[in-house]
Design a protein around this nucleic acid. Structure first.
Length: 863
RNA sequence: GGGCGGUUAGCUCAGGGGUAGAGCACUUCCCUGACACGGAAGGGGUCAGAGGUUCAAAUCCUCUACCGCCCACCA
């Protein structure tokens, strides 16, 4: 006998069932299953940066619904969680939170304690200078803060009902992740896929690190074209160029125009002199020069932008570097030879030490004084390259870095990556084009080294020659059995610690890897690559990679690349790309406006199922507005599930969902519709369209409550005992439909479905079998259910129009409709009359549906 | 500059050759024996614009406009 609470409620479902699932191990991964019985998910490790926002919830809920669906389909779901605690966001947060800054030159202090009253996450920048902290102490602070954040995230994920197996959790800075990162790197190195190179590199002057192509973004910035005169030699006229970066005039190594540009063709091969410094530079031709831009001829500097790098490389120009790694102009003067203006060094000295901005102001004054500035600068806005997390434009400096080949310089590899991307099942399919345009636009190999502190170090040392200089051409690599290693504290085989940094000894590679170098290995890290071959064989390649659209070029591409390089196969078969969260009304949320929506806040206000309902209404890949209205609707749905379940269980008693008992035509008709729903929802989930599955299920459910329950109520109660077979049919249909609906809703509303399932079924609904199409057949051409629903609805409308209660008796009702539909109606006449309180039902053939009713007169109210 | 989406009711969005849909908001009614954390009903739309294909277009094709995103060597 079902045990139904007197007053069902959504209160506390999260904590009650959350604890029960944990205790029962409901989502525990059973690793005895074989690969074809397993569904394996490459969960995105959220960046543990201290803030939990609604965007974090959105995509994860989508994935969870997919995971729950697959689990109910009988697959064992491998659903781990990872934490991305590696890298710059953490470093930056630790700096701000504790008011410290890493100083790698300081020795480790085992007794170190952070400031007693750290500034915390107040959001205000401390006026105090940051306290310098040794590197290893700094890393410890990072670990300490991320551990707290990871707790907060786990609590949030549990609350929202993610069905992950929390025993499978990994972190991107943990030993396993470090080992995998270093191992994969060593394998890349062995196969020649990783290499070192000294080259011009995009450089963030604030973070003082190199930056990869994938981390760039353009920002529209104000700038100005400065027209500047280069005086001719060899009897030629002066040439006017336009530049937005006049401060780089001292770095100029040539002028360049398009080979077909008749204005400059006579000057090709001639020499001109730079203003102020009088440095002779050649006038050259290159097809990349755009005759339409500026004055049609550009100055090439080392280096103002990436085009300069191309020209410098392809025209084999000398280097005249002026930009320092701190974003200030270098001292002393760049190498410009002897044949220069007498005042060249003195003039440059006025610029040296200044930031690019300051230097620009000064050099413009100098150019005005010397008369080399033509007219006033013309202000423009133009796109400037920034590191996506940075605040100042990137500079280009020459530095030694590690790279991994990614197809940018290898047409065969690029073609292979495009082909592989095409066989991935993209959900939605249009997302492939983003991958394609990224791969087609790759212009450099993947720069994986970063001049930072908190990250996975390169497992590499360099021998130090007798001159005290490291030999970068002959790296000493760690052996695989020693991983993970930290070359700044570990010693290479065959050396001793006292040989560190001395002639004839060694030094460790000081850099750490790009976070994507680790994140690109999440499939390997999660599945136990090279550490747990048994697990690896059961879970790799994985089935699904869910992720956001903004990291297709980073996470998705790099993961695919490394899997192809290491395993020669794809890391997964399917990828689902979730949409973006938009603020309500596209207004920016801010604390001052008081309209910030926090996950915890809405989860408490509406309940987890309601918030999931909102998220799951966002179509795959479609940007979705944050909408508390949808959460309200979700809450109402969850309450309806409680009440409808309570009612159905009360009416049907101990009835079985035995199809053989379903003999009444309208019950058969409902069963047919249920079959269609199951078919629809299953197909939707199979194509990763959780939103469609939810929408269809919800639509059926409301009609089931409004119409079917009303229609069969009376018959199912069977109070007069006149139709025992009809009562049994109704009860069996109720049982069948309720069981199906509870399971169809389970991936979306895990808490309320588990609650109502527990009232009458053994075990978790989340381990119950997904409903199957039964192959039901109806007893009538027209759907008895639909005709009866329509008549019932018309009766309700008539009562509502008359402003009468739905309890009002109908003395007589005349239904006009097609003969076919009237025949269908006849099969449900008793149910319709009971539900509508119709005393006499008359039918007349017609071409279309029409209903007229005569209502009982209102009762005199007793005074 | 190249590409991908989008434009449907006041709002948030489904639908995708055959009479325009849902929820919210609004109006009216109903405390009916599951549900007032309810329920019933109603008003409200030239489906961005223009052309084309078709017996029939919100839906397919072409172009235009605007919005968003991705990519691009950005002097």
């Amino acid at each position: 006998m079902p045990i139904v609470p007197e007053k069902p409620s959504l209160d506390d479902l999260e904590s009650r069932w959350g604890a029960r699932w944990e205790a029962d191990g409901t989502y525990r991964f059973d690793r005895s299953k074989s690969r074809d019985e397993i569904y394996s998910i490459d969960t995105p490790p959220p960046t543990v940066s201290g803030s939990l926002h609604m965007g974090s919830l959105f995509g994860y809920v989508h994935t969870d619904s997919i995971a729950r669906y697959r689990r109910m389909r009988g697959l064992e779901v491998f659903y781990p969680m990872g934490w991305d605690d590696n890298g710059l966001p953490t470093e930056r947060r630790v700096q701000n939170y504790f008011g410290v800054q890493c100083d790698p030159s300081l020795p480790y202090d085992p007794a170190y304690a952070p400031p007693e009253t750290p500034p915390g996450d107040s959001g205000k920048k401390s006026k105090d200078r940051p306290i310098p902290v040794p590197r290893r102490n700094f890393v410890e602070l990072c670990l300490r803060l991320t551990a707290e954040d990871e707790q907060a995230f786990e609590q949030l994920w549990r609350r929202v009902g993610l069905s992950v197996d929390w025993e499978l959790t990994y972190t991107s800075i943990g030993d396993d992740a470090q080992r995998a990162s270093q191992l994969a790197f060593l394998r890349n190195l062995e196969r020649g896929e990783a290499y070192q190179s000294e080259a011009p590199t995009l450089w963030d002057v604030d973070f003082r690190t190199a930056v990869a192509q994938a981390e760039l973004e353009d920002r529209e910035m104000p700038g100005a074209y400065h027209a500047i005169t280069f005086s001719g030699t060899d009897g030629g006229d002066a040439i006017v160029i336009e530049t937005t970066r006049p401060e780089l005039v001292p770095a100029c190594v040539a002028l360049v125009a398009h080979p077909d540009d008749a204005r400059f063709a006579p000057r090709f091969g001639q020499t001109v002199r730079t203003p102020l410094f009088g440095v002779p530079v050649p006038v050259l031709a290159h097809p990349l020069a755009d005759p339409e831009k500026g004055s049609g001829i550009a100055m090439i500097c080392t280096f103002g932008d990436t085009t300069d790098v191309v020209w410098w490389r392809e025209l084999q120009l000398p280097t005249r570097n002026v930009m320092g790694r701190d974003g200030r102009l270098l001292e002393p003067s760049p190498p410009w030879g002897d044949d220069v203006d007498d005042k060249a060094d003195a003039r440059y000295a006025e610029l040296a030490g200044k930031t690019a901005k300051q230097a620009q102001r000064r050099i413009v004054e100098m150019l005005e004084e010397s008369g080399d500035l033509v007219g006033d600068p013309k202000t423009i806005t133009h796109p400037v390259k920034f590191y996506e997390k940075g605040d100042r434009p990137l500079e280009i400096v020459s530095s030694r870095q590690w790279y991994i080949r990614n197809g940018a310089r290898d047409p065969d590899l690029r073609a292979q990556l495009l082909d592989r991307g095409r066989v991935l099942a993209w959900h939605p399919s249009t997302m492939y084009s983003r991958y394609e345009s990224w791969v087609e636009g790759l212009n450099s190999d993947w720069l994986i080294s970063r001049q930072r502190f908190f990250g996975v170090p390169f497992p590499v040392w360099y021998p130090v020659g007798s001159d005290g200089e490291p030999d970068f051409e002959a790296p000493i690599v760690a052996t695989e059995d020693r991983l993970p290693v930290d070359p700044s504290s570990d010693v290479p085989n065959g050396y001793a610690e006292d040989q560190r940094g001395v002639p004839g000894g060694f030094v460790g590679d000081p850099d750490v890897m790009d976070t994507w170098a680790t994140s690109s290995l999440t499939p390997q890290i999660a599945t136990g690559w090279e550490t747990d071959p048994d697990l690896f064989a059961r879970t790799f390649p994985m089935d699904l990679r869910p992720q956001g659209p903004e990291i297709i070029r980073t996470w998705l591409f790099s993961t695919l690349l490394r899997s192809i390089l290491e395993h020669g196969e794809m890391p997964w078969t399917d990828v689902s790309i979730n949409g973006w969260i938009l603020d309500p009304d596209r207004k920016k949320m801010s604390k001052s406006k008081g309209n910030v929506v926090t996950p915890i806040g809405v989860l408490e206000k509406f309940g987890s199922d309601a918030v999931r309902y909102w998220a799951l209404n966002g179509r795959p890949g479609v940007d979705t507005a944050l909408d508390e209205g949808q959460m309200k609707v979700g809450r109402r749905l969850a309450i309806k599930v409680l009440n409808a379940s309570k009612f159905v269980l009360g009416v049907m008693g101990e009835a079985l969902a035995d199809p053989a008992l379903i003999t009444t035509p309208i019950d058969r008709a409902v069963w047919v519709e249920l079959d269609a729903l199951v078919d629809d929802a299953t197909a939707a989930f199979d194509s990763y369209d959780y939103a469609r599955a939810l929408e269809r299920t919800e639509r059926f459910f409301w009609s089931f409550c409004d119409d079917y329950l009303e229609l069969v109520k009376s018959r199912a109660y069977g109070t007069d005992g006149s139709d025992p077979e009809g009562a049994a049919s109704a009860r069996a249909t109720l049982a069948l439909t309720l069981a199906a609906l509870q399971r169809l809703f389970a991936p979306h509303l895990p808490f309320v479905t588990e609650e109502v399932w527990s009232w009458w079924r053994e075990g978790s609904v989340h381990r119950a079998a997904w409903p199957e199409v039964a192959g039901a057949t109806a007893w009538s051409e027209a759907s008895v259910y639909r005709v009866a629903s329509e008549v019932l609805g018309a009766v309700r409308k008539a009562k509502s129009d008359a402003q009468r209660s739905l309890r009002t008796d109908v003395l007589s009702a005349v239904v006009r409709d097609t003969p076919e539909r009237l025949a269908a109606l006849a099969l449900a006449e008793t149910d319709v009359r009971e539900a509508g309180r119709i005393q006499e039902l008359i039918t007349e053939p017609a071409t279309e549906f029409e209903l007229t009713v005569e209502l009982a007169p209102p009762e005199e109210k007793p005074s």
